[in-house]
């Protein structure tokens, strides 16, 4: 299993990866992307089983990345991990094909709840 973590903050990528480990996903390979454009490229080159993406990033936002993936035919499971967890954004994410939206701050239990149905 491979998980792609996209966030423009290196510190936040580390926190997400640490939380994945705490949630029990410590045997999964993790690859990182600094923005939506890099995430888009790495979905093609790395073929991850799940994408965890921030929303607000330079170059290409998370929602733009998701829409580009779906437009290209990719159905890679995609979830947001973002500081912006409003109802409006949850609806936008869902309409674009996201499986879930985890709002920051989060806990390992939140990760388990959202990731278990996707990657076990």
């Amino acid at each position: 299993m491979k998980i792609l973590v996209a966030d423009d903050s290196r510190v936040m990528r580390q926190i997400v990866i640490r939380t994945l480990r705490q949630a029990g996903y410590d045997s999964h390979e993790v690859v990182e992307a600094e923005n939506g454009r890099e995430a888009l490229e790495k979905v093609a080159s790395e073929a991850p089983d799940l994408v965890l993406s921030d929303w607000n990033m330079p170059e290409m936002t998370g929602i733009e990345c998701l829409r580009a993936l779906r437009a290209s035919g990719s159905q890679v499971p995609f979830g947001f991990v973002t500081s912006e967890g409003s109802d409006d954004m949850r609806s936008t994410a869902s309409a674009a094909g996201a499986l879930f939206l985890i709002a920051k701050p989060f806990t390992s239990e939140t990760f388990e709840d959202h990731l278990a149905p996707v990657i076990g």
Partner: peptide
Amino acid sequence: VLGGGLKA
């Protein structure tokens, strides 16, 4: 994260 929490 603080701004996002308040914005919500």
